[in-house]
Design a protein around this nucleic acid. Structure first.
Lengths: 138, 138
DNA sequence: CTAGTGTCCGTAGCTAGGTACGGAGTCAAG
DNA sequence: CTTGACTCCGTACCTAGCTACGGACACTAG
């Protein structure tokens, strides 16, 4: 599969694929036999999609690389992989918990803003989140 | 409260507060009476903390402003607020769902990497996430 | 053989989100 | 009334993550 096809299937530009390649986020597919064109496997499409996905969720490209290198590297000791995976898992759980806080703040807001009149002093998104601060300030 | 105190309590630099002020993310506290110094309420500290928090979770500053302006703007119609809050709520739920996908991929990975030997071909973080793609490709 | 499309590479430019600099003013303590 | 800590403002600079440019090469169809 050539670069244009990968880019299209992953929903990004060709330049982005080249950029990710330089960053080491996807395989380096030098194939001088094939006229000097890059040739990718379909796994690359999934990798690129995963990168975009993880970016939306607040991971940097470096963190995403860490996530991706958790997989099959035959040289790596399994205990090490497990340890890094656990660290990432903790991060992910923390993100979920904090998003859940925002979620319930928004739900409260929607509950409280039932009427059609002026919003006056209802709509306390920060107030809803302040409780966190108060807990951590005792 | 002056800018340095806000910055310290929120755990950011003074320049960052000024930057957020320029962006309209926090109140504009021009107080020429007080020697020309900015004077902030303690709410600003919470706002700044919320901004940093939300950034970690993948929201841009523009999106964060949208979240923050959901609160008490006496001119705003409550129905409009509710609508925007619902849209944000959908985004947040979606993020949580996608993080949950990564979470279970990591949990699988940790399960499968029980041994101490070489990692060989276990550790399928992408494989675990591929299932998503397959569902959306039917 | 030629035109068109896709790819190669390096380098330059762009947006978001800060971060640092430098010269001047404010204020409290000594 | 000077010293030191803090603040003012504007501008310049920086990193991350793309995105565009431009000239050369490959491959396909006509």
């Amino acid at each position: 599969m050539r670069i244009g096809e990968v880019a299209e299937k992953a929903g990004v530009g060709v330049e982005t694929i080249r950029f990710y390649e330089r960053k080491g986020l996807i395989e380096q597919p030098r194939k001088p036999a094939d006229g000097g064109y890059r040739s990718y496997s379909s796994e690359t499409v999934n990798r690129v999609r995963f990168v975009r996905e993880a970016q939306c969720l607040g991971f940097s490209l470096n963190e995403i690389e860490e996530l991706l290198t958790l997989r099959a590297d035959p040289e790596t000791d399994c205990a090490d992989v497990r340890e890094r995976a656990q660290a990432k898992l903790d991060e992910v759980k923390d993100k979920i918990a904090r998003l859940a806080g925002i979620q319930s703040a928004l739900e409260n807001l929607i509950q409280e803003c039932r009427g059609d009149g002026p919003a006056s002093s209802c709509c306390p998104i920060l107030d809803a989140l302040d409780t966190d601060d108060k807990e951590s300030m005792t």
